[in-house]
Structure formats: structure tokens, C-alpha cells
């Protein structure tokens, strides 16, 4: 529901990350990690990105989303697993003391650019 705000932030970060030595930068791709438990839907991010990227250095850019699985670890018996359901009980010992190793990411990892003046 708030994907447009997230996309605006992505564009802001991407534009601010263009190095000073690139005079006429065009961003070709933005690489993003989105955890399975993050409150952001990849399809909605793509849709919003198409609209928000217009008239910016990202107008021809692809939003490349790597979806990160929900990975959980039991702190009692150290078992790790990738969860297909949001159940935070240990698969092995049924313990309740677990931690989330991945799945909440909403990170921009890199941009790929070309200098149109080169």
C-alpha cells in the first residue's frame, strides 16, 4: 500500500549515488533486495517504479528485485530453516526461542549506470 513512497525513496537514493565524475549518467538497473516478510509487494514496486522513474535518470532503468527467503534459527538447538509459512516455532525441538536470519530486507544494493557522454 505504501509502495509508491518506497519507490520514491529508491529513486532518491539511486540518483544521489551517481558519482560526481559521471557527467550524463543514465541508470540502467537498480538492484534491490526484498525480504519475504517485508511489507512490500514486488509487483507493486515494479508498477510504481514505471510511473515514478519517468523524467529521471532512471527512466530506462530496470528494477531488479531479489526476493530473500524467510530464514529462521532456533537459538536452543541451532537448527536453521527456510520457512514457507510465518511460523516461528522450532521445527526440531518446538522451542519458542527463535531468531529471524533473513526475510525483512528492503535494501538497495547497487545501481548500474552508463555515462551517455562517453
Amino acid at each position: 500500500m505504501h509502495e509508491m513512497g518506497i519507490v520514491m525513496q529508491i529513486i532518491k537514493i539511486a540518483v544521489a549515488s551517481i558519482p560526481d565524475d559521471v557527467k550524463n549518467a543514465q541508470i540502467k538497473r537498480v538492484n534491490l533486495k526484498v525480504g519475504k516478510l517485508a511489507a512490500a509487494v514486488p509487483e507493486s514496486l515494479h508498477f510504481c517504479f514505471q510511473i515514478a522513474a519517468q523524467d529521471t535518470p532512471l527512466s530506462d532503468a530496470e528494477l531488479n528485485i531479489e526476493e530473500i527467503p524467510l530464514k529462521i534459527r532456533c537459538t536452543d538447538c541451532n537448527v536453521e530453516w527456510i520457512a514457507s509459512e510465518p511460523v516461528f516455532l522450532c521445527r526440531k525441538c518446538n522451542g519458542t526461542s527463535v531468531e529471524m536470519l533473513s526475510g525483512r530486507e528492503l535494501d538497495i544494493t547497487s545501481i548500474e549506470i552508463v555515462d551517455k557522454d562517453n
Binding site: I6, I18, P19, I108, S110
Partner: peptide
């Protein structure tokens, strides 16, 4: 701090690492 690092001069496309949380503001 998000400024990115750049390498290489002869390639058309270069990747700039950022590694920032989108909601860090």
C-alpha cells in the same frame, strides 16, 4: 555513506555498490 564506489573506466556499464536500507531516512 551511500556515495558509492566506482571502478573501471573502459566499460560501458559499471555497477556502483550502495548497500542502504530503503527506509533509512
Amino acid at each position: 555513506g551511500g556515495g558509492g564506489s566506482v571502478g573501471g573506466k573502459n566499460s560501458d556499464t559499471r555497477e556502483i555498490k550502495i548497500v542502504r536500507k530503503v527506509l533509512d531516512v
